[in-house]
Nucleic acid binder design. Structure first.
Length: 679
DNA sequence: ATGACCAATTGA
DNA sequence: CAATTGGTCATG
């Protein structure tokens, strides 16, 4: 223990402390603090202590011993005595004097003089804690990775000068209205904010890299967030290509604690000025930040699963506002939240003209009606309408074909082959499922095997599987196209990239590999299944997944979606109109008083605990409470709070205050989630 | 959380 | 009357 010498020095003070213990707390002078000299300049350290209690979530002042005067810098990790225990904390700032009436306890030790908590990140954690009605300590845990002493010892060389070819950037963005203005604004030190809806087949990582280069040209740093490791890697490759080597670090969880802390320090020390990563990168300690970018903000991986559940997009927006940095929210799809940013003029729009979109992709809908299936003998048994079959056959003469199929490894319920009515068990009415390729269907509820099923509605004896999963799909496509290799990408076998070779790639949503020169065609199967989920965001989410897959075509390629052409999300896909769809969604959400037109929060916990919190809570005037009702299978109850957007921050503050009172009174815990992604 | 203090309650 | 329990308060 490096702190043992300080600890034993502290021991001498203890008898004195004991002698005063009988006196009233407020007036008792803390004996012993005078025995050690304090730092000459700014002898007070304002410390954020790491305690889990909401009502203690504020800075406390400590005396800085002279020996620590140099090391206890703002942002340094320290250890302090708090409520009779040694706890960790961060120095928020140094000050000449304290507001605190009593004598200050000295810092126990400076864990490391490394200023790992930048002032702007400290500020951001405060605002996020307020926004999400959580504790600052919880947000800090998301923002600053655990210390790794070995990583701290090694200093990284400052990055070499980046290669900056701003004209190349303007060429790359030439397809987009206001793209050049955005880059020029960045390179001249401005802070534009844009919602960028990428055209199909766009090489988006390269465009993001050019935006980063433009920002670097103004001498500022860049943060880029992408949903998963594959996307981070793609941006990383593009950054190296555009700006040269060693200009950026990747902040991803799975590189291990040492490498993670090393890369974090490269940023906090100012040696590297560009960070690209997943969720946690939103907190990257990039010096003199100029641009915050996020790709595909609708991806649910951006919803932090740990309290207080901040969303990466909201973190970036708050940070951009607070630091006066530019913001770039890009994607093939458009989330309702980013559409809302346009509507409120928080950001402006960067899109490709219609003509560009039209020349890059044509989308067709193929109905899955039985007559169309019947026309093509090759497609029999596969879920391929003849249009889709022909498209695949034609495209395969030219390059790889991507087939997106919803979900994998899932035992699907069966339906009547002719009328599509659900196939039910004759004994208990449970759903019939297939457990094997050659075995008869069984009831999922009572387990009885059914080998002579007939449809109770139309009398037809044939069954079909509405969802086959990617393995069955791959099998069937292999039979329909026997001369072509079929590969799969899903679950834990996700392919990053495929070549220009002629092959069929069957992938589940989000696992689609990119094709080096784009797919000759993309086919989206069973689109109605993705829409069958009952959820607030089902349509938005389905369209996002289809657009992301469809955007992988090569310029001029074709996309076929198998489904019901009257469906609004599919129509938006055919017209390639993510903007119009998002507008429509906003209108609906507003009517239903749902986010982003309103602010929601959920309270989940033991029924009594939820009631207690609701009693404490002083809601803003226009807020209302729905429930509480039983929720989940663990005996928990949940209440939903709703407030108009104008009272959103008031709702958050009220929840924060209630959480502090709850914590001070030692009432049972309640999980508070502000703007949960799924309801 | 943890500890301290104070008041009310319990038990011999 | 001491011992125990419960509520409140503060934590620098």
């Amino acid at each position: 223990m490096t702190g043992s010498s300080q600890a034993s020095a502290q021991q001498e003070a203890l008898p004195g402390l004991r002698a005063t213990v009988r006196r009233s707390r407020a007036t008792a002078p803390k004996a012993g603090t005078q025995s050690k000299p304090v730092a000459e300049t700014d002898p007070v350290a304002r410390v954020l202590v790491d305690v889990p209690l909401a009502h203690l979530d504020r800075p406390f002042d400590y005396a800085v011993p002279a020996t620590m005067g140099e090391d206890a810098v703002p942002g340094a990790r320290v250890r302090v005595r708090f409520a009779g225990q040694d706890v960790d904390g961060f120095v928020l700032e140094r000050a000449g004097a304290s507001d605190h009436a009593g004598r200050l306890t000295p810092l126990r030790r400076v864990v490391s003089p490394e200023p790992v908590l930048l002032p702007e990140i400290a500020g951001l954690t405060g605002r996020l804690a307020e926004r999400y009605a959580g504790s600052r300590a919880d947000v800090l845990r998301l923002a600053v990775p655990p210390r790794h002493a070995t990583a701290e010892k090694a200093a990284r060389e400052p990055a070499p000068e980046p290669t900056l070819d701003l004209e190349a950037g303007e060429r790359a963005w030439a397809d987009y209205r206001h793209g050049d203005a955005f880059l020029t604004h960045l390179s001249s030190g401005g802070s534009p904010r844009a919602v960028w809806t990428a055209a199909p087949a766009a090489d988006w990582p390269t465009l993001v890299a050019h935006a980063a280069a433009a920002t670097r040209a103004s001498g500022r740093g860049v943060v880029i967030c992408a949903p998963d490791l594959r996307d981070v890697d793609r941006v990383s490759v593009a950054l190296a290509a555009v700006l040269g080597p060693d200009q950026h670090v990747k902040l991803v969880a799975d590189v291990g604690p040492q490498a993670r802390y090393r890369d974090f320090l490269a940023l906090s020390r100012g040696a590297v000025r560009i960070a690209v990563g997943t969720r946690a990168a939103a907190f990257a300690p990039v010096h003199d930040l100029g641009l915050l970018a996020i790709w595909d903000d609708g991806d649910d991986l951006f919803a932090e699963p740990r309290a207080p559940y901040p969303h990466t997009r909201e973190t970036l927006l708050l940070r951009a506002e607070q630091q006066g940095a530019a913001a770039l929210l890009g994607g093939f799809a458009r989330s309702v939240e980013t559409a809302y940013l346009l509507r409120t003029n928080w950001a402006h729009e960067i899109t490709a003209p219609r003509a560009v979109v039209r020349e890059r992709v044509t989308v067709q809908i193929a109905g899955a009606a039985e007559e169309e299936l019947a026309r093509d003998p090759y497609a029999r048994g596969a879920r391929l309408p003849s249009t889709a079959f022909q498209t695949i056959r034609r495209a395969l003469t030219d390059g790889p074909v991507l087939v997106q199929t919803p979900r994998s490894g899932y035992a699907p319920s069966l339906a009547c082959e002719r009328c599509r009515g659900p196939a039910r068990c004759r004994h208990c009415s449970g759903p019939l499922v297939l457990t094997g390729v050659m075995t008869p269907p069984v009831c999922r509820w009572c387990g009885v095997a059914e080998d002579s099923w007939a449809c109770p509605i139309c009398g037809h004896r044939g069954l079909r599987a509405p969802v086959l999963g990617d393995s069955r799909t791959a099998e069937e496509l292999g039979r329909s196209f026997p001369q072509v290799p079929v590969r799969r990408s899903s679950g834990d076998h996700v392919l990053a990239e495929v070549s220009r070779q002629r092959e069929i790639v069957v992938a589940t949503p989000g696992a689609e590999p990119i094709a080096r020169e784009g797919y000759a065609a993309v086919v989206l199967l069973d689109t109605w299944l993705m829409l069958a989920r009952a959820d607030l965001r089902t349509e938005e989410e389905s369209l996002r997944r289809w657009l992301n897959a469809a955007a992988l075509v090569r310029p001029g390629g074709s996309v076929v979606a198998v489904g019901d052409a009257s469906q609004a999300a599919l129509q938006a896909l055919v017209r390639w109109d993510p903007a119009g769809f998002a507008e429509r969604e906003i209108a609906q959400r507003r009517e239903a008083r749902l986010p982003p037109a309103a602010r929601l929060a959920t309270l989940t916990g033991e029924p009594g605990a939820v009631d207690d919190l609701l009693t404490i809570l002083e809601l803003p005037s226009a807020a209302d409470v729905l429930g509480p009702v039983a929720f989940g299978d663990r005996g928990e109850w949940r209440a939903v709070l709703r407030a108009p957007r104008s009272q959103g921050i008031a709702l958050s503050r009220a929840l924060g205050e209630a959480a502090r009172v709850r914590s001070a009174r030692k009432l049972d815990p309640v999980r508070v989630q502000v703007d949960p992604v799924v309801l």
